[in-house]
Simulated assay, not measured.
Amino acid sequence: MKILAIDDQQLILLSVEKKLTELGFDIRIADNGTKGIALYDKFQPDLVIVDINMPGMSGLEVVKYIRLEKTQDTPVLVLSGNTNEHVIVDGFDLGINDYMKKPVGLNEMVARIDRILGVCSLPSPEYVSPANQMLQKYCVGIVIPCYNEEERLSSVEFQKFATENLGYHLCFVNDGSTDNTLEVLEKLRKGNEDTISIYNCEHNGGKAEAVRQGVLHLSKD
């Protein structure tokens, strides 16, 4: 089955795309409403997942396009951090099938998709991801300066955080370390490339400069 996901937060899209692809869905993603409706016409999905608060065309405008302009009954699942009761009611008045408020677990999202489509993507408990992976309301970049932290970096804890909190991106800045901090960071990032990045400063410039460089790196990433 084909699913179209529309959200202006890239980490949300990547997480949803990865999860649904693993479960065998054919998924396309769009980072704004205009691209979303263009993909809708071309892709003709069996389900649309859409955020409400997006720059330009809002999620409700996407729903209006599907229901009023195209007069299609394609199931629509809203996945949004907007908790305004009037907005939620407007969505149901337009004909959405379900409304999920962020933060929300990926497995709960899949369960609701299954209910709407009448399929069973999670056939047994052991198939469900053991980590309680959550889609957050906001995508947050966190800069972590590191100077000679080889012995103190807890890779397991950081990897667990990155896996369970999908609305966050961790940027580690190696601030001219003279030990093996960079190698430790590279191992930490392995398998978590979408949620962990590394910026390497050849010379130590202090924590403030490391944070500044990390923020600049995140803004370009």
Rank of each mutant, 00 (worst) to 15 (best):
K2Y: 11
L4G: 05
D8K: 06
D8G: 09
L13N: 03
L13Y: 05
L13K: 00
S15Y: 06
E17V: 05
E17D: 12
E17I: 04
K19D: 10
K19P: 00
E22I: 08
E22K: 15
E22L: 15
G24P: 04
R28G: 00
I29N: 04
I29W: 01
A30Y: 09
A30P: 00
D31P: 01
D31F: 09
D31R: 08
D31E: 07
N32L: 13
T34D: 03
T34H: 15
T34G: 03
K35R: 12
K35F: 04
K35N: 12
I37H: 04
I37L: 06
Q44K: 07
Q44R: 05
L47T: 01
L47C: 02
L47V: 08
V48R: 07
V50T: 15
D51W: 08
I52K: 06
G56L: 10
G56F: 10
M57R: 00
M57P: 02
E61R: 07
V62T: 12
V62N: 05
R67I: 05
L68H: 06
L68N: 04
Q72M: 10
T74G: 00
T74R: 00
V76I: 14
L79F: 03
L79E: 00
L79P: 02
L79K: 01
S80H: 14
T83S: 15
H86M: 12
V87P: 03
V87F: 02
I88S: 04
D90S: 09
D90Q: 13
F92S: 12
F92D: 04
D93R: 14
D93P: 07
L94F: 06
L94C: 01
D98W: 11
M100V: 07
K102N: 10
K102R: 11
V104H: 11
V104S: 03
V104M: 11
V104F: 08
L106N: 05
N107E: 11
E108A: 00
V110L: 09
V110S: 07
R112K: 14
R115F: 10
L117C: 06
C120R: 06
S121I: 03
P125L: 09
E126F: 15
E126W: 14
Y127P: 02
V128D: 12
S129V: 14
A131I: 08
Q133R: 15
Q133W: 00
Y138E: 12
V140Q: 02
I142V: 10
V143T: 11
I144Y: 03
N148Q: 10
E151K: 07
E151L: 12
L153C: 06
S154H: 07
S155P: 01
N165C: 14
G167V: 01
G167I: 08
C171H: 11
F172R: 07
V173Y: 04
N174E: 05
D175C: 05
G176M: 03
S177F: 13
N180H: 13
T181E: 05
T181S: 13
T181C: 08
E186P: 05
E186L: 14
E186D: 02
K187Y: 11
L188K: 00
L188V: 12
L188Q: 05
R189Y: 03
R189I: 05
G191N: 10
D194G: 13
D194I: 10
I196T: 06
S197W: 08
I198Q: 11
I198S: 15
Y199L: 09
Y199A: 09
N200C: 06
E202Q: 04
N204K: 15
G206Q: 09
K207A: 14
A210E: 07
V211R: 01
R212Q: 14
Q213E: 10
S219H: 11
S219Q: 14
D221C: 11
D221V: 08
